[in-house]
């Protein structure tokens, strides 16, 4: 398909929510006379995604990420703007569109709890009209990629969280969708299981050229998988570009860590940038990006430097800092 596989233009969603005062009196009043309020969850965002891209979708809780994801999958109707996914208008939920997409939600499962995952996979194969021999072949292929074997024959309730998520991914990909919407696919998984899911997603994207739009609570997922991120805040698109660009935008300085062979007074470093810490032989400075090379050269010339490290502040701290500045307490992409 030529051109973007996802095209959103001025996309918005307003929810009408009813308001209720706490307590019994509030409940009775709410029953007799309902009061409603319109909440703008997504406020005219525009972006395009090319086929084969892996894009991270970041933002604090309530920023509008899930609402956008649900508009993209066709689950909810946009209040305004235009939307096209895989050449279709999602909300019409035509079968041809639904065969091209999939949605995985880390906190909800589609597999049958009391039965082996294989039984649920047979149901999915039937619903998508995949012949049994072909379904078996696909299951074997995906199971190998996901490192799933006899687990598929055990009742789902007896699997670990990581194994269940891998089985969920298998079920979601059986029909070979070209667009994957992943809403917190590594939620609750331990570090090893997270890494395996990430490796699988990267491998799947490489092998099939599928487009992936991913939201995650774990910054590791985003840094490992997404060359491009969309940062959404209060329903608006704050950033659309690489993580490096976002870091530059949020952090005009880089962190310089020095280890010296002798002791120096703190004032000696004041002219190089902001002194974050100075303890014994260790010094940590924030140096403006534009003067970094020049100042590092002077530091090396002026002091007896044993070790030097230049780095960006952790991205989760930067994003967390941005939303704290804007009055947000909880941040997706923050430290888990």
């Amino acid at each position: 398909m030529a051109g973007p596989i996802i095209r959103a233009s001025g996309l918005s969603k307003t929810y009408r929510i009813s308001e209720k005062q706490p307590g019994l009196a509030g409940t009775i009043q709410h029953l007799l006379r309902r009061r409603h309020r319109d909440v703008l969850a997504v406020d005219g965002i525009s972006f395009t995604i090319e086929p084969g891209e892996i894009v991270g979708f970041l933002g604090p809780n309530g920023a509008g990420k899930t609402t956008t994801l649900k508009m993209l999958t066709g689950l909810i109707h946009p209040s305004g703007g235009e939307l096209e996914v895989a050449g279709h208008e999602p909300f019409r939920r035509q079968a041809r569109f639904l065969r091209q997409i999939t949605l995985v939600m880390g906190n909800r499962q589609q597999l049958i709890w009391d039965l082996p995952a294989l039984d649920s996979l047979r149901v999915n194969a039937a619903v998508y009209g995949i012949e049994e021999a072909e379904a078996r072949r696909r299951i074997a292929e995906l199971a190998e990629m996901l490192e799933l074997g006899p687990e598929l024959q055990r009742p789902l309730r007896k699997l670990s969280l990581g194994q269940r998520m891998k089985a969920e991914l298998l079920a979601a990909l059986l029909h070979r969708p070209s667009v994957l919407f992943l809403d917190e696919p590594t939620l609750g998984l331990d570090v090893n299981a997270q890494a395996r899911v990430r490796d699988f997603l990267a491998d799947y994207n490489r092998r099939t050229g599928a487009t992936v739009l991913l939201t995650s609570h774990y910054m590791g997922d985003i840094t490992a998988l997404c060359p491009r991120v969309l940062l959404i805040h209060q329903g608006q698109l704050f950033h659309d570009g690489s993580l490096a660009d976002l870091t530059q935008r949020l952090a005009p300085c880089r962190q310089v860590r020095l280890e010296l062979s002798d002791l120096q007074p703190t004032e000696a470093f004041a002219c190089f940038g902001v002194i974050e810490a100075h303890q014994g032989h260790q010094v940590r400075l924030l140096v403006p990006r534009a003067q970094l090379t020049e100042r590092v050269a002077v530091l090396l010339e002026r002091f007896a430097v044993v070790d030097l490290e230049v780095s960006d502040p952790p991205i989760e701290e930067l994003i967390g800092g941005l939303f704290r500045q804007r009055g947000e307490a909880s941040v997706t992409g923050g430290v888990p």
Binding site: K70, R108, V127
Partner: peptide, 18 residues
């Protein structure tokens, strides 16, 4: 209540039948 209706609505089969 749990939001799993999303999975039903995204299947290429009549949701009332499902």
């Amino acid at each position: 209540q749990t939001g799993t209706l999303d999975y039903v609505l995204l299947k290429p089969i009549d949701s009332q039948f499902w």
